[in-house]
Amino acid sequence: MISSLEILIPKNLNEALSLLVERKNNCRIIAGGTDVVPGLQQGSNRFANSELLIDINRIPEIKSITQTREKISIGGAETFSDMLQNQIVKEELPLLWKACSTIGSVQIRNRATIAGNFVNNAPCADTVPALLVYNATIEVESLSSKKEISIGEFLTGPYKTKLNKDEIVTRINIPIPSKEFRGDFYKLGRRRAVAISRITLAVLTKTQNHMIDEIRIASGAVTPIGIRFSDLEKLAKGKYADDKFLKLLSQKLGEQILNVTGLRWSSEYKLPVVQQMFYQLLKEIEHG
């Protein structure tokens, strides 16, 4: 149960960042509240010393989706519903759009935000594999600094990121992928809606006459954090994408996951399934 907390709703970014500096050690950011409120309610240790919640839902700088020639920029406090309704996201970033559509329920998607999905770096964060294959960069601001780093760099370890206590994820910037890329996002859960991910995969490929020009592969929920598989991507570059190779690539993905994750209680199920479903995904992309 929550026993005592102040909530402030800054109207602009500067105000929010100032609050973070002033109230350094005892404040937390709240956006959708889908993670924070149950955590507070259940007396989770993560919120043990929180005295102030900063609601960032009304900061215009982090609430918009914009497009330039090279990139799409999504405000950190954009909700999944906003992203799903956005034509730019739907057309240019179909994997991210699909990942958003598989998250929670309408009620959750109406509140939960894109930055909120990955700032605590839970292994099952559904947007992460899509952001990884899109080479997304994360814009982070504090009162005194502004930096932009790749999502892969930002996510440092299970439940750990590069975000400092005085910083806010302001924008997620995604270079517009070339039209030659084809790809898909895959999610497996225990039921067909409102399910925690058991496995997520995102793949983007560019092929010419079945020759792999470029492939980007990322997973979530099967590794301690969502990751890109650059070794596999290098291996695949320039290879002829016949059935035999797609199977090999799937086996290699299994090996990589095993290396990164080690054997866990769920490996006996997840390892064969991730190889099979990665193979299915590659075949499906191949056939358009």
């Binding site: 907390l5 102040e6 909530i7 402030l8 709703i9 709240i30 959708g32 509240g33 889908t34 409120v37 149950p38 309610q41 919640l53 609601d55 519903s81 929670g104 329920s105 309408v106 009620q107 959750i108 109406n110 509140r111 409102v194």
Partner: peptide, 23 residues
Amino acid sequence: GECGACTVLMNGRAVNSCLVLAG
């Protein structure tokens, strides 16, 4: 926020009222 029994509309959108704070 899993069962939706507390759903209300906030600015026209369905939300779980157990996940929104009064503040």
